[in-house]
């Protein structure tokens, strides 16, 4: 009987995947190319896709960091920025840019647009899906560029790479910090929660569901179930048949979600340093609360936005100070596995 349920799940998931691909196909008309440099993409290049809105402060460092890691081409979708994000991106030599005025929420938080771009350009490439406030690091990232990692994943027969999203925050009220575009955000945001993550398994997607971190501690104490999901699978050897289900937390087909070991061993994994809490968050929160574009059931998150708009101090005496990947690896927030 177990196999029958299993087969039924698999069948449903297959249709779900097809439905999502079809959705992306329909949404392609919402995208207008601004500048298309995809002809530069060479067969083994590592790509990054992202949808952005008013991220001109974060993008300079974001691009610099991931270029240095070895991302060869960036595919961006700009969703009605009015702070010059679009011009900035269009001027970058390794960026292709599309724009759309349509709803972010109705496009499954940008996923439909990105799925379309991935199906067109990322097939056969290792592809990163990141938000502009996410900085990917992994063991040895300071000495081994991304192609070293993806070569090694290829050799060990893996098609996806799992990460934990680590919320970084400053010491002191969020809004009173200073940050200039292009600065290393980790100079301002150098604190994090190291040991309050909870994990459960999502049997249907065979993925893990990790919650916790500073947002759960400070904002979701009354309703932990609503706390944000902290695990992501941002790096995938892409096939046009693949599709992300919700943000980059989980994918279909399901085997791509198996980025963890269930026999007690450790797979190699990384961390997305989450620079959400730069000073501008305080002003942005009020705006996002009004836009209602970030959660399917936005009203439930009003308190969260209110708390953020209140310019809180997230630091506590048990916060840890970020020093580098070796520290995060030793704390068990990521693992080098057998990639030494």
């Amino acid at each position: 009987m177990v196999w029958r349920t299993e087969a039924a799940i698999r069948y449903r998931q297959r249709w779900k995947r097809r439905r999502l691909l079809y959705r992306a196909l329909r949404k392609r008309r919402q995208l207008t190319p601004v500048i298309d440099r995809t002809a530069q993409i060479r067969p083994d290049d590592i790509l990054a896709v992202s949808s952005v809105r008013n991220e001109s402060a974060r993008l300079p460092f974001f691009l610099e960091h991931h270029r240095k890691l070895g991302v060869a081409h960036f595919l961006f979708v700009d969703n009605c920025s009015d702070d010059g994000t679009d011009d900035y991106l269009a001027a970058q030599p390794d960026v292709s840019l599309w724009s759309t005025p349509h709803s972010y929420r109705l496009s499954r938080f940008g996923l439909d647009w990105l799925t379309w771009l991935q199906s067109q350009y990322a097939h056969g490439h290792w592809c990163l899906m990141l938000d502009a406030d996410e900085i990917l690091i992994y063991p040895h990232h300071d000495t081994r560029p991304l192609p070293a990692l993806t070569d090694w994943l290829d050799r060990t027969g893996r098609q996806s790479f799992g990460t934990l999203m680590l919320d970084l925050y400053p010491k002191g009220p969020l809004g009173t910090q200073t940050y200039q575009p292009g600065d290393d955000p980790m100079q301002t945001l150098c604190w994090f929660d190291r040991g309050n993550y909870t994990i459960r398994k999502q049997p249907h997607l065979q993925s893990l569901w990790i919650q916790g971190g500073v947002r759960a501690r400070c904002f979701f104490g009354a309703n932990p179930r609503r706390a944000p999901t902290m695990n992501k699978v941002p790096l995938v050897k892409w096939h046009w048949r693949h599709v992300y289900v919700n943000s980059s937390h989980a994918l279909l087909p399901r085997h791509l979600n198996r980025v963890y070991d269930e026999d007690g061993g450790e797979e190699t994994s990384g961390i997305l340093l989450h620079t959400k809490f730069l000073p501008e968050i305080v002003a942005k929160s009020a705006e996002e609360k009004a836009r209602r574009e970030h959660f399917a059931n936005s009203a439930l998150y009003d308190d969260y936005y209110d708390a953020l708009a209140d310019n809180p101090d997230l630091w506590c005496e048990r916060s840890s100070r970020l020093t580098g990947w070796r520290q995060l690896e030793a704390m068990g927030l990521m693992s080098r596995g057998n990639w030494v």
């Binding site: 799992g162 990460t163 934990l164 993550y197 994990i199 398994k201 893990l208 990790i210 695990n231 980025v259 963890y260 070991d261 269930e262 026999d263 007690g264 061993g265 450790e266 797979e267 190699t268 994994s269 068990g332 927030l333 990521m334 693992s335 596995g337």
Partner: peptide
């Protein structure tokens, strides 16, 4: 005894 994103023993 470590439970994390790439180690979750059944």
């Amino acid at each position: 005894g470590l439970y994390m994103q790439s180690r979750f023993p059944a």
